[in-house]
Amino acid sequence: MTAKPRRWTKHYPDSPEGTARCRTAASHHAWLASLGAPVPRLLVAHPHKLEFEHIAGVHARPQDLPALACLLGDLHRVAYEHELHRARLDRPHHTTTGVTIPDFVSHRRTAIIRLLTQRAVPEPALSLSDAMNALDETLAGPAAFYKDSNPRNFLISTNGPILVDFDTVTLAPLGYDLAKLIVTLAMTHGPIPDHQIRTALDTYNTALTRAIRELQPVPWKTLMTWTAIHHVLTSPYLGRGGYRHPWTAHQP
Rank of each mutant, 00 (worst) to 15 (best):
M1T: 06
A3H: 10
R6N: 04
K10D: 06
P16A: 13
T19H: 12
A20R: 15
R21H: 06
A25R: 00
A25Y: 01
S27A: 14
H28W: 04
W31M: 03
L32S: 03
A37Q: 05
P40Y: 12
P40I: 10
R41E: 14
R41N: 14
R41Q: 14
R41K: 13
A45I: 02
A45F: 00
H46T: 08
H46F: 11
H48K: 06
L50R: 02
E53K: 02
H54P: 00
A56P: 02
A60G: 06
R61V: 06
P66M: 09
P66E: 07
G73V: 09
D74P: 00
H76S: 09
E83Y: 05
L84Y: 08
D90Q: 12
H93A: 03
H94V: 15
T96Q: 13
T97A: 12
G98S: 08
P102H: 10
F104A: 09
V105Y: 03
S106Q: 13
I112P: 02
Q118T: 13
M132S: 03
M132V: 11
N133M: 12
A134I: 13
A134Y: 04
E137G: 14
T138V: 15
T138A: 07
L139P: 01
A143F: 07
A143E: 04
A143H: 08
Y146D: 14
K147E: 03
P151H: 05
R152Q: 14
L163T: 05
V164M: 04
T168E: 07
A172Y: 07
A172L: 09
L174V: 09
L174Q: 11
L174T: 13
D177K: 05
K180C: 11
M187T: 01
H189L: 03
I197V: 15
I197H: 01
R198D: 12
R198V: 12
T199M: 11
T199K: 12
Y204R: 03
N205C: 07
N205Y: 04
A207I: 06
L208S: 05
T209A: 12
A211N: 13
I212A: 09
R213H: 13
R213A: 15
P217A: 11
P217I: 13
V218M: 10
V218N: 01
P219R: 11
W220I: 09
T222L: 14
W226M: 05
T227K: 07
I229V: 12
H230Q: 14
V232R: 01
L238Q: 06
G239I: 07
R240P: 00
Y243V: 04
R244H: 14
H245I: 08
H245N: 05
W247T: 05
Q251P: 01
P252E: 09
P252D: 06
